[in-house]
Amino acid sequence: MGHLYFTCRVPFPATAWYPKGVKPLLWPRSLASGLTLVGLLLGGAAWAQALATPGWVRLVPPVVKDTAAYLTLENRGSAPLRLVGAETEVAQRVSIHMDHREHRGGQVVLGMRPLPHLDIPPKGKVEFRPGKYHLMLEGLRRPLKAGEKVTLVLKFQDGSRLKVILPVEMR
């Protein structure tokens, strides 16, 4: 398994009040290699904490200007977490897509639909994988190469951000 990515925002001000029972941890910017942890306090009580388990960015033929990124997003906190978008240097735009499935003439018709945002409930997780959700990287600025790493910044409603590094793979 690859690295795990946590995010969050350092509570502000530094002398933030912590809810009862929550130990005022040190919120280190960087732990071990590839692991970033930040804290996120909402109203001083409920908090959301995003944890991303990297998947991959799909290697597409060089003629294709769009690709998909896959990962698992988990909310370790006690407040809902709302993903509102993402950014990457390699593409002009990143959209949150949900796969669409219907039956026509006894056969499966597939497609995708953009979502304005995606909620991850407290203690819940959402899997981005073929057939479910994907982050669509639209308008690739250059063809990607197998094995290279793509950095994606996930953006949440509360203003927090999560950086995830995904390998480019043909799968």
């Binding site: 669409h100 056969q107 499966v108 497609g111 639909r113």
Partner: peptide, 23 residues
């Protein structure tokens, strides 16, 4: 072949998605 396909989410010329039979 009994294949269905339909443009969706039209945003402009050349900017749309397509639903299609995936058999």
């Amino acid at each position: 072949f009994g294949v269905y396909y339909q443009k969706t989410q039209y945003r402009g010329p050349g900017e749309y998605l397509v639903d299609h039979t995936a058999t």
